[in-house]
Nucleic acid binder design. Structure first.
Lengths: 232, 232
DNA sequence: CCGGATCCGGTTAGATACTG
DNA sequence: CAGTATCTAACCGGATCCGG
């Protein structure tokens, strides 16, 4: 709103005015992925300042991309949901991500890993179909990380819902996966396979053979993993 | 290069870092449309300062999207061409434009019309197939504009190449089209038809019936015109 | 914890002029 | 034609603070 306009009647320019400001596309990725609450969005874009997040959300609301709605049961608290115009941005976000996966060198970006972002993304895309029908608990251990980000539990409930904990939920663990964050991120991005990492000892699963063997199947990959990489 | 990074390993964030800076997507539209020279690009993004254009071109070069190459015959002068990574951005630019055409209110943007931009776009997309085989000259007159932007000539040569002049080329004119800039822009954007504008007297063609009658056919529309508009 | 608002220093962009 | 140079205004990042 406060943005100086490009003053062009071209649809690309008109759209870019709303979409191509700092952080906006990354925020839209979070919204498209299903985040709705302010602090849930903050978790997805942790380096964006809350002030700017608030500003962007108001801009997106003014542009008709996001609607603010009260959460039933707790007044004052609001949720941000994509409108139809917002949901229509999914192809745009996907096209950008596909191009990024194909052409942007990953090396510099692999120095900015974030276990929490990775685990939330994994939770979101986990494929529960190959997982046993009983409650299944998988513990991920990143030995090189400080205590606070070292251990994560993914829990698949019998109803097929998935939870992520970073404190011990107390359940028996079915599978332990010890791996370094970079390797796990590369697997998630489709840059290497589970079996390759396991063979080289970069990923060590401990638990029932079947659950470990099907890891590549139940570990959903990033939506962009199928795009081959041509750059760096 | 000097840009602060988002510091996320997500492909969307990695791509957005390069693409979603001010003016970059609009500039890419020009490059995708085929402009290669510095001042040709300036004409397509007239409100972008030359300093910023120069900076963006260097950034796109560093990102492997644009390659700078000498123009044969005139040294010192360079052309900017998209690399394969750059040509791969066409779907991204198109997705953004399609979304803009569908969802961005045009009303505010229709206050920033530009005859030169429009005429160059028309030249680029003219469909020469329905135009007679002889040299055909069409004069566009925007009566409300100041002298310098009032009159434009589109010339289709027998070899089907198209020229645009804003000074009288001296040829006999086959068709005169008198129209206001807003109407012509709306037609170009697919928001109204030639026949509708003609019936309401907003567009007045003077010349051979056949050339006037086929105007909707030879007047190529904006690449985004086929996308229906849902907003404003 | 949730959902922001405010302030301040550094960076980026816009406007215009100027040069080889 | 193809850019630099320069100055000012706008924006962004980070930290802090605040009311429920």
């Amino acid at each position: 709103m406060t943005n100086a306009s490009y003053r062009q009647f071209c649809p690309v320019a008109m759209a870019a005015e709303v979409l191509c400001t700092r952080w906006t596309v990354v925020l839209l990725r979070e919204l498209v992925a299903g985040s709705t609450r302010f602090n849930e969005l903050r978790r997805g874009v942790p380096r964006m300042s809350p002030g700017l997040l608030s500003k962007r959300l108001r801009e997106l609301e003014a542009a008709g991309i996001v609607a603010r709605e009260p959460v039933p049961g707790s007044k004052e608290i609001e949720a941000y949901r994509l409108t139809q115009a917002g949901r229509d941005l999914q192809p745009v976000v996907e096209a950008i991500g596909m191009w990024g996966q194909k052409w942007v060198e990953t090396e510099p970006s692999l120095e900015n890993l974030d276990a929490e972002l990775l685990m939330w993304d994994m939770r979101r895309n986990l494929n529960t179909e190959p997982v046993p029908r009983e409650r299944t608990v998988i513990e991920f251990i990143y030995p090189e990380l400080p205590e606070a980000e070292r251990t994560w539990w993914l829990i698949v409930e019998p109803d097929r819902s998935v939870d992520l904990c970073h404190v011990d939920p107390g359940f028996d663990v079915d599978l332990y996966v010890t791996v370094d964050l970079r390797t796990m991120t590369e697997i998630w991005m489709g840059l290497r396979s589970v079996s390759d990492a396991a063979e080289r000892g970069a990923l060590v699963p401990v638990g029932p053979r079947r659950l470990a063997a099907t890891m590549q199947a139940w570990l959903g990959l990033s939506p962009f993993a199928r795009q081959e990489k041509l750059a760096g």
